[in-house]
Design a protein around this nucleic acid. Structure first.
Lengths: 188, 188
DNA sequence: TGGCTTTGTCAACGCCTGTTGACAAGCGTT
DNA sequence: AACGCTTGTCAACAGGCGTTGACAAAGCCA
């Protein structure tokens, strides 16, 4: 806030736009995110975005690209994966949302144009590394199931009203079940 | 095609609109479905839809309502659930899509307005019956996990390019793993 | 200082959207 | 036949969208 007049710095502005776009596209669907919204976040005219990134499509792709490869998910001990991730999903959804790439993918399901763009990036950027990290027999299948499961939990939470709306006991029960399933998928 | 002039039948036209809307909303996101698209499907002017259903929002809700309660999922033997559903998911995705309600929900994740509308209907129409059918201890949690898992698989397939793009062996491996997970959730 | 490129703003364009009110045609009733 | 209600079409509106080209101002170089 109160940043004063934006200093003339193309590089900084560019990344500021990219950051804002990433955040917006992770929070709303492709169609619901307007160029003017992003521009307002940055404190810039919408026209500038078009000039820097060419088009909304290209901005979207750039934002998706800038998310990294989801390596946050793969940090830490494999033996602890189930416990760690299940805890984040159930008790710290905000933290789990740090996987911006997954959020963006999720928001794009359904929107024909966005889904098409995601498909290309998705395999190389997300499924690939995950599959490699999991390793072992049938890594392809297990990675696919894992990714699907994680996204499904996001969908379920979202449609449940932003919360799982469970009692503490139920939440813990859910976490334990999640832990088992996830860990089984990791260990083969 | 070539249906000639539409006979003057309000009731029939109304349900025709509802059918077309259900199909459209199950195939594309709320934003991507236009009133004129639905109207064209039915062979009617878009204005008529507004007059019959009031607004796009109300049409969407009516379409969602008309999907039933997902009871197709719960038909058949419980002991066979895992095998049956895993088979549909992996080998007959088109058939699995018959769960229009789930498709619509899925397409709506992300679109702020649609998601809000879905949230209210969702719990009563889908999670509720599923939870009741599953029964037993912690039915709430197990139903939630099950629904999340099913939707996640849809997302995963969609983002994988409309296919799982696996070898036959991998597909079967996936089906078997799915079967185990699903059946475990059903049986408690 | 004067010119030139970069960085950003502004107004406007064409397009598409959901919705509205006026109008045409069908059909039953009196 | 003449009325009136229903069913449907048509043209238009206001608002939002992404994008464009002309213009202002800042900084750099000679």
């Amino acid at each position: 806030m109160c940043t004063g007049p934006r200093p003339r710095n193309a590089a900084a502005t560019r990344t500021a736009i990219l950051d804002a776009a990433r955040e917006r596209f992770a929070a709303d669907s492709y169609d619901d995110v307007g160029m003017r919204d992003i521009a307002r976040d940055v404190g810039v005219d919408a026209a500038l975005i078009s000039r820097y990134f060419g088009s909304k499509d290209e901005l979207f792709l750039a934002a998706l690209d800038s998310c990294g490869d989801g390596s946050q998910l793969m940090q830490g001990d494999k033996a602890d994966f189930g416990r760690r991730v299940s805890h984040e999903i159930v008790y710290e959804p905000k933290k789990a949302e740090k996987l911006k790439a997954m959020s963006i993918m999720l928001r794009s399901v359904g929107s024909a144009r966005a889904a098409e763009m995601v498909q290309n990036t998705c395999a190389a950027r997300f499924f690939g590394p995950l599959e490699e990290w999991i390793g072992g027999e049938n890594a392809v299948v297990r990675a696919r199931l894992l990714a699907g499961f994680l996204m499904g939990m996001s969908v379920s939470r979202e449609l449940g009203g932003g919360q799982f709306s469970l009692t503490p006991d139920e939440a813990e029960e859910m976490r334990q079940r999640l832990e088992v399933i996830l860990q089984n998928l990791i260990e083969g």
